[in-house]
Write a protein that binds this DNA or RNA. Structure first.
Lengths: 337, 337
DNA sequence: ATGAAAGCGCTAACAG
DNA sequence: CTGTTAGCGCTTTCAT
């Protein structure tokens, strides 16, 4: 069924002029006489003419659309990133197609195809937890379709990226705990195939080593969600090994840990500290409030989009760039003795 | 710059056959000989051919894309809705364009244009808090582009919609509080231009009236966020009027209220109850945990999308439908004496 | 079993 | 100042 929306031809026919004249009049082309312009614009308004972006995309081989691959929108961090992306993109006259991988590799690959089929002008991507092979991005590279990776980037890939200084942030968070007097700190780590997982762990280790605190291998546990954190905490407590702190790879994990500790009678921050990562909406509503690293989602979104648009609009090639945002630690009740 | 992606023509040229044959071979048309099909498919794979969805959309006057207008992704409820939408849409071979209005009327109008320009096959919309005029949706109606409204619907508009039974849910939540023995319950209400705001207030009133509890006009306060809730609570306490409960229009408001009450030495649930609405991720991490109405975001998303796809794919017209989801109250620590 | 041609809506080079 | 023409990539009659 035809949509029935008004086209340039309809206007042309009605005014008994050519389609190209209408097209030019609509774009305020200098060649067109004032009266024609006026007639065209009036009629266009009257008929509620809406340009067909699809036709334009086909014609120009540019869609003025950017694709966004995002693991899961439900996280405060990622939804802030989206807000940043949209603000910059809309201001520049670009549309945004947002696709969730739901942390699944196969979905990520499919999305990649869809975005390509829709001829997006560029993509912003944060890879899923499952992704270990990156060849689905080759086609973008091969066809010079710009990509910018944000937050969850690919180690060693020559491509624009914007990240926060995860290592440093984790280092500072851990150091802060040590300075507050905690000694037997555990790290609930993220998946180690993600660079952010590695980096946060590195930062933790660096601070511990620097302070001369020994670490046994039970002190680093690969765990990154609310439910698992509960069990992990119970195991730690049952082990009877010395323990007085947890630095978790994200806030939900930290909160799961904190809840279980409190339930088991551990006082926070008196007996043990908990520090999270991301600074979502949760951190200020827990009791005690949760210390966390502010990941600056909105800024990451704006920055990544600016980088992408620059790439899209630039004629010439230039070397790939990495932009590192500083993350700051927000100290709250859960780690201040 | 040309994208350089392989087209049907490239394949045709290489194989010295016509573009139409390639097109047919790719779609496994019965007229085409097996060998041709094989040759085409092999070459397509080899050249990594990706069909151009833009051209297809133009040709078919169908984009296989649905537009989603959503107030703010950061809310757990809305991001769950999106997940539901995506799951159903993808399974049906549809793409999804998600646009945030950020609760602003002007943005909503702009989005409407963008979606139209991109010739989406239908839209799913939840209106912004600011929206009081709905004429920007007329063009969809006039051109038979299907719409389904979800959650924040337009009163009196003849259009498909999916909502939860807000009135009943609010009624049950309030009734529960009354049954637990609370008497002087305040309602922190949402904007009254949104139907959901009205309905939740109605439900509250119904339960109060039914129980024969009198209400003065200070007991209903139009307030729907974390920060404002804090001040409102202070005012209530300072008024020295009898008070022992708050039913809030959403969880963040409830949590803001609860925090302030606790800070002021009010014991929850002993001295006062707090009940929220939406059942976001927060409700189980507060102390005490927050009783709340489960709004079933995911189901709302799937249902709305199914309704929309049915409309899009159906040849004939049929009367508009309203689908009402039951919401259930989840009783937690904040309201159980 | 395959090809030629037209057209979706729009723009831009070229012509006048 | 305006019109003609061709073409973006694809599908689909209508021929052959």
């Amino acid at each position: 069924m035809k949509s029935g929306l008004v086209t340039i031809k309809d206007i042309a026919r009605e005014l008994k002029i050519s389609a190209s004249t209408v097209s030019r009049a609509l774009k305020n082309h200098p060649d067109i006489s004032e009266e024609t312009k006026e007639a065209v614009n009036d009629l266009a308004k009257k008929l509620n003419y809406q340009p067909n972006a699809v036709a334009l995309s086909l014609k120009q081989s540019r869609s003025s659309t950017i694709g966004v691959i995002i693991p899961e929108i439900v996280h405060y961090f990622f939804s802030s990133v989206i807000s940043g992306i949209e603000d910059v993109a809309y201001d520049a006259g670009f549309n945004v197609i947002i696709c969730q991988s739901n942390e699944r590799y196969d979905r990520e690959v499919t999305i990649t195809r869809t975005l390509l089929a829709n001829r997006v002008d560029g993509i912003l991507v944060s890879i899923s937890k499952e992704t270990k092979d990156f060849s689905h991005f080759n086609i973008f590279r091969n066809h010079n379709i710009p990509m910018v990776f944000y937050d969850r980037v690919v180690p060693g890939m020559q491509v624009d990226q914007v990240i926060i200084d995860d290592l440093d942030a984790a280092y500072r968070a851990t150091k802060h705990m040590i300075e507050e007097g905690y000694r037997y700190i555990y790290h609930f780590a993220g998946p180690q195939n993600l660079l952010i997982g590695q980096q946060r762990k590195e930062g933790f280790l660096k601070a511990m080593n620097e302070a001369g605190l020994e670490i046994n291998d039970r002190q680093i546990i690969e765990i990154d969600n609310f439910e698992k954190a509960r069990n992990a905490v119970i195991e730690i407590l049952e082990s009877k090994l010395p323990f007085d702190g947890i630095f978790a790879v994200n806030d939900m994990t930290a909160i799961g840990a904190m809840q279980t500790l409190l339930k088991k009678g551990i006082k926070i921050p008196k007996d043990a500290a908990v520090v999270g990562f991301s600074d979502g909406r949760f951190s200020s509503i827990t009791d005690p409030t949760l210390s966390s690293v502010d990941q600056h989602g909105y800024e990451m979104g704006t920055l990544a989009t600016e980088m992408l648009l620059k790439r899209i609009l630039s004629k010439k090639d230039y070397p790939s760039l990495t932009n590192v945002l500083n993350a700051n630690l927000i100290v709250r009740g859960s780690s201040r003795k």
